[in-house]
């Protein structure tokens, strides 16, 4: 069993950890849910260019006054920073598929040791559609998965092989949960950091995928100043 953490803490921790991954000037697309929070934790003085697939780049903080002509991909009101711009969806997905977006962060239902992910449909439930997720994970140069380590029922979400309909094959670079950080490189999964509440054995018990533990297993970064 994994310890139970406060839901808000979980979300903030994951978002904050992923926010450490970007370099000055990188173009990043954030999915809905936990990924949206990543923008709030970009370290002071670092400039990241946020893109939204419905047609905006250079996204800043939410505006004080609602503007229905200016929304993000999750439907929230957005503002643009100086230098930002709007464009049509064909241009937007050209930017995404064309390799002009450095990173995308998104939640998922399942991810596996091959770097496949499944986040758009649970067969048996009504099909919602994949939206922009398939293009984003194929097009963005790095793909970050932000999710809780296990399902609400306690089942692993990091699997040997995804069971749900795939979003894409072999695209995930990093998995960040509330308890652990894994990298996936050349088909090899490595546990690089774990949170102080858990032991490596607990992570092993709650992770179905095969993975190696980094030689110098680190403490989950970003917790010190929460």
């Amino acid at each position: 069993m994994l310890p139970e953490l406060d839901e808000k803490l979980v979300r903030e921790r994951i978002a904050k950890r992923i926010a450490m991954e970007f370099e000055e000037g990188e173009v990043v697309n954030l999915g809905i849910g936990i990924p949206t929070l990543v923008a709030d934790y970009i370290p002071e003085g670092k400039h990241i260019i946020f893109q939204a697939e419905n047609g905006a780049i250079g996204i800043g903080p939410p505006p004080a006054v609602p503007n229905y002509k200016c929304i993000g991909a999750g439907g929230r009101f957005i503002s643009l920073l100086p230098g930002g711009s709007f464009f049509s969806s064909d241009i937007s997905f050209g930017l995404i598929r064309g390799g002009h977006v450095d990173a995308t962060v998104l939640g998922t239902l399942e991810v596996d040791q091959r770097g496949d992910l499944a986040n758009w449909w649970i067969p048996g439930k009504s099909v919602p559609g994949m939206g922009g997720a398939m293009d984003l994970v194929v097009g963005a140069r790095r793909v970050y998965v932000a999710m809780t380590h296990v399902t609400k029922k306690g089942a692993p979400k990091i699997l040997k092989k995804c069971t749900l309909p795939l979003t894409a094959v072999g695209v995930v670079d990093m998995i960040v949960t509330e308890f652990a950080v894994f990298t996936i490189k050349d088909g090899k999964v490595t546990l690089i950091e774990i949170a102080p509440e858990v032991t490596p054995e607990q992570i092993r018990e709650n992770t179905e995928a095969d993975y190696e533990v980094a030689e110098e297993l680190g403490v989950y970064r970003g917790l010190e100043v929460v």
Partner: peptide
Amino acid sequence: LFHEGKMELELFPQGTYVE
């Protein structure tokens, strides 16, 4: 409506759809 067979539904990834 789709699952009841009353309407067809064709879904595409958003980038594919606009392209």
